[in-house]
């Protein structure tokens, strides 16, 4: 098990968002957290990458183990150095940096000396980014920006790639492209954890699913085997 989250409780100020989340991600697997807006998907991911810290009025309890290392209480830059790359909701590319700089700033040799992803390999997977390498991040289209955030995550040569609602606000044709990208990453054996509102996309790109409601895991199972009435019950579709 590469990631084990046990009884995770998360707070923003006085309000509790997560009520004891349990989840597991196996090496090489693709796992999706699915749920409606505001149920705690993003908070869960932020807890894992160390962005829910006391400085921003956040607090977490419970345990998050990555490769046996406890992440709770660790600053986010150290968590990233353990091999976790984070593609946040809302993209968060650096608008004043060029595409190339956006990639180079994340460049890192993986924990086991892994150098799979270089600028060249990234440009092979995302030829569009090569074309735009000298454009400022802010000049890119939404789809290009999203490609860039995924590419930036890969530049860290991570053991685990965490992605939060990557198709939000994108045109269907770009979503198709992202499905291909994520499938390609899965084929290459990259461990993936995503959060998604779109059921269709979630089922296409994940092997296992956790359905989250009001800060708790209410259902888990293999994506392709989840009965339809489960989705109707929790997601209304």
């Amino acid at each position: 098990m590469i990631l084990e989250v046990n009884n995770l409780e998360g707070y923003y100020g006085l309000s509790q968002i997560l009520f004891g989340i349990n989840l597991e991600v196996e090496k090489g697997d693709s796992v999706c957290l699915i749920g409606r807006n505001g149920v705690g998907k993003t908070t869960t991911l932020k807890s894992i990458v160390g962005q829910l810290n006391p400085k921003v009025n956040g607090k977490i309890k419970g345990s998050i183990k990555f490769d046996g290392t406890e992440l709770v209480g660790m600053p986010s830059y150290k968590i990233a150095r353990l091999g976790i790359a984070y593609v946040p909701q809302g993209r968060h590319i650096f608008p004043t940096l060029t595409v190339k700089e956006n990639l180079l700033i994340a460049e890192r040799v993986g924990v086991d000396g892994d150098k799979t992803w270089t600028l060249e390999r990234i440009y092979e997977l995302f030829p569009r980014l090569k074309e735009r390498e000298n454009s400022k991040g802010e000049k890119l289209s939404g789809g290009e920006q999203q490609m860039l955030t995924i590419a930036r995550g890969l530049m860290q040569n991570p053991k685990l790639l965490i992605m939060d609602e990557i198709i939000e606000g994108l045109a269907p044709i770009i979503v198709e492209e992202l499905v291909k990208v994520v499938s390609e990453l899965r084929n290459r054996g990259i461990t993936i954890l995503l959060a998604e509102q779109s059921l269709k996309f979630a089922l296409e790109v994940s092997h296992k699913c956790y359905i989250i409601e009001k800060g708790e895991v209410v259902y888990k199972g293999v994506s392709s085997e989840i009965p339809k009435e489960v989705f109707v019950k929790y997601l209304g579709t």
Binding site: P75, A80, P88, H92, F94, I105
Partner: peptide
Amino acid sequence: SDREMVESLGI
């Protein structure tokens, strides 16, 4: 432009 994101890249 984005301090938190820089930190999440391991810097």
